[in-house]
């Protein structure tokens, strides 16, 4: 969804247009769910929190002002706060281990075993990142936010987010054993990927 359409939908939703809010939901529900699912231990919690975030967004929408604040960043900040509130209430350690892994029915047992192994390795590598690095990966790659939206959601500067992303990617490559042959080239490549992703 382009920025102009999003601004228009937000303005219409602020005036009480339910259909406009429905379109905003359709654009952001998947990314918000993925972000939350990456930070809570149970899929049922991810579902409840996703719903809570959109209800909170509905309540807070009249106070939202677009001036310089990306809507996606604002929405993900609500999601982030909802996750923090929930973890405080339940006194539960935020775990990256999700109970279920969706499996493809067409895949062979060997391919499934390999996929499961890859997924477990990624989960372990993510767990080794610092909290900030992991959050950048969750927001940028799992939720698909831009650098500006990620910065708004985390309450950080764009440059800080870029730095955290650079170090997170380097750490993930190192842990997963997929380092490029010449480390000097890494910075250029990461910058290229950052633009693409």
């Amino acid at each position: 969804m382009d920025e102009e359409t999003l601004d228009r939908l937000v303005a219409e939703a602020q005036r009480g247009d339910t259909a406009a809010f429905g379109r905003i939901f359709d654009a952001y529900a998947g990314p918000i769910y993925r972000f939350i699912a990456s930070r809570v231990s149970r899929p049922s919690d991810a579902e409840d929190l996703t719903q809570l975030v959109f209800v909170k967004a509905l309540e807070a929408l009249p106070r939202y002002e677009a001036r310089g604040i990306p809507f996606g960043g604002w929405l993900f900040r609500l999601a982030r706060n909802a996750i923090i509130d929930q973890s405080r209430t339940r006194r539960e350690h935020l775990s990256l281990v999700v109970a279920t892994t969706r499996e493809s029915e067409e895949a062979s047992p060997e391919a499934m075993a390999s996929l499961r192994d890859d997924i477990d390795r990624v989960a372990a590598a993510l767990a080794e990142l610092t909290d900030d690095q992991r959050e950048v990966i969750e927001l940028r790659f799992f939720a698909g936010l831009s650098v500006a939206e990620t910065a708004e959601a985390m309450g950080r500067q764009d440059g800080t987010v870029r730095g955290l992303q650079f170090r997170a990617i380097a750490a993930l490559r190192r842990t997963l054993g997929i380092e490029p042959e010449r480390p000097m080239v890494l910075a250029t490549q990461t910058a290229t990927v950052e633009v693409c992703w």
Partner: peptide
């Protein structure tokens, strides 16, 4: 080294995509 960097990024992207789709997608 340049190609190796691309390959490493592609591999990492594939792994993160697989993780996202199997563990996180609603």
């Amino acid at each position: 080294g340049y190609e190796g960097g691309f390959a490493a990024n592609d591999r990492l992207e594939d792994l993160l995509d697989a993780y996202r789709e199997t563990r996180l997608a609603p």
